[in-house]
Amino acid sequence: MRQISTRTIIDRIKDSAMRLNFELKEDVLSSLKDALDNEESQVGKEILNQLIENAGIARHDMIPICQDTGLAIIIAEMGQEVCIVGGDLRSAFEEGIRQGYKEGYLRNSVCHPFTRENTGDNTPIIVHFDMVPGDRLKLWFAAKGGGSENMSRLFMLPPSAGWVGVKEKIVQTVEEAGPNPCPPTIIGVGIGGSFEQSALLAQKALFRPLGTLNPDSELVKMEDEVLEEINKTGIGPQGLGGRITSLAVHILMMPCHISSLPLAIDIQCHASRYTEIIF
């Protein structure tokens, strides 16, 4: 068994929480610059320029890109030959978040659903565990903002809907969201699985860097087709009209029940903040 100490895990989560929020990922930044070349609207161009400038200020001043520094989500793939020492793993994740959000002056954005009382330390966090072969622990850590998350949707479609129906639902979801999720957005799509699995697929689809091809050539075509339709809507940067409504559509798909066609659409704003941590 390979041992991994909770101390190391806490430190890495803490550092990542701060870095994610201060430094816009390079793939997102270069995608925004490409968008600037393709945007026809003057207002749209001005907005993209502001976002690029914002990323520079955030990195330089060590101040968050967005004031919504997010709800922490960790998707953990735990090797079967890993042994965690020094405490329990979930508590280590939460301690890392607690320390990172405090030291980085990040916003605590977690509250009671009804009283709206803030929990004060950005916990609890959302954790999904999976067991895999091997002796590594791999974490996908995302800081998710509420504005775009609120516009995400899940549909249990009839199988007869097919690809045409799926495509229509994705475009309709983006249209209804309009300016609310801070376009230009990145659209994570999960097709198949089950009710909850489709949502997890959609989230995982967002963990692919912008500008990289889907390894499944069937999905590459589908992604291109939906993105083209989305960018015909005219919503544009911040919904003020323009060509670039979404930067990319990323799809993950798996088999599903013979009666179902689950579809989850995870709308991610331009401030896409996630990282892969491997121990």
Partner: peptide
């Protein structure tokens, strides 16, 4: 809903919410 002000700053990040 801004982020807390780091030392030496008036306020943290302060963009609009929906």
């Amino acid at each position: 809903g801004p982020t807390p002000a780091p030392p030496g700053k008036v306020i943290g990040a302060a963009g609009a919410t929906t």
